[in-house]
Amino acid sequence: MSLLAVRDLTKRYRRGGKTIAAVDGVSFAIEPGETLALAGPSGSGKSTIARLVLRLIEPDAGSVQFEGDDFLALSGTALRSKRARLQMVFQDPLSAFNPRATVARALDDPLRIHAIASSAERPARIAALLERVGLAADLAPRAIHEISGGQRQRVAIARAIATNPSLIVLDEAVSALDVSVRGQILELLLDLQARERIAYLFISHDLGVVRAIAHRLVLLDTGRIAESGDARAVIDAPQSAIGKALVAAAPRLNRIRP
């Protein structure tokens, strides 16, 4: 049984009297410990799918099975406890945190809300979470806005893994980072996956990053799946028009650097 199974997912928006299908009959599955990438140009529906899977918005049609449950039918306590297993990291960690919070507070919230640790246990849990994402425990009292962008994204990942999730949705989670920091964050994600068997739904417009980190790839175009398969196989020999266009447009050093 797949960890996540999305079937015929559809989301329509009304704009200026016209109905636009942002996501149009999309189906895919993610296995435990796997990274599935969603890629495509602006407006292809990749972020809408992320928000549908997280139930930040509700679909017009389709189903989402997560850990064997009909995720769209859950409500109340059942939904809240299931949400702990499905976490998210966004592109801009600064806007994802309470700007007045400290690092400790940002990590204390999920531990408290999901009743994972008592108040006496939480400082030690927070220190352990920081260590798991490669940060020093003495970062805990610092304000979120004081630390660097790379450190902030590590805190966002620490917050995501605080509730012991089986799946993390990463929506352009490394796109705003400097390249040197980006490499470190990708390594961290791979290490966490290897150690804890977390699956990732990895949303990115950057095929170079997708090729480096994803097992499988779903390429989207105007809300529909253009092609899917092994990430490297699709990128190395795209079959769809959008796949060919994305690959052709990717900047590459090897045109100059043999």
Binding site: E31, P32, G33, E34, T35, V179, S180, R182, G183, L186, E187, L190, A194, R197, D206, L207, G208, V209, R211, A212, I213, A214, H215, R232, I235, D236, V247, A250, P251, R252, L253, N254, R257
Partner: peptide, 20 residues
């Protein structure tokens, strides 16, 4: 270091293993 950090379509994948 900047050149090496570039993840081009021909870069060696960071992913070392297939999912279990």
């Amino acid at each position: 270091a900047l050149l090496d950090a570039h993840l081009g379509l021909d870069a060696a994948p960071l992913l070392r293993q297939a999912p279990a």
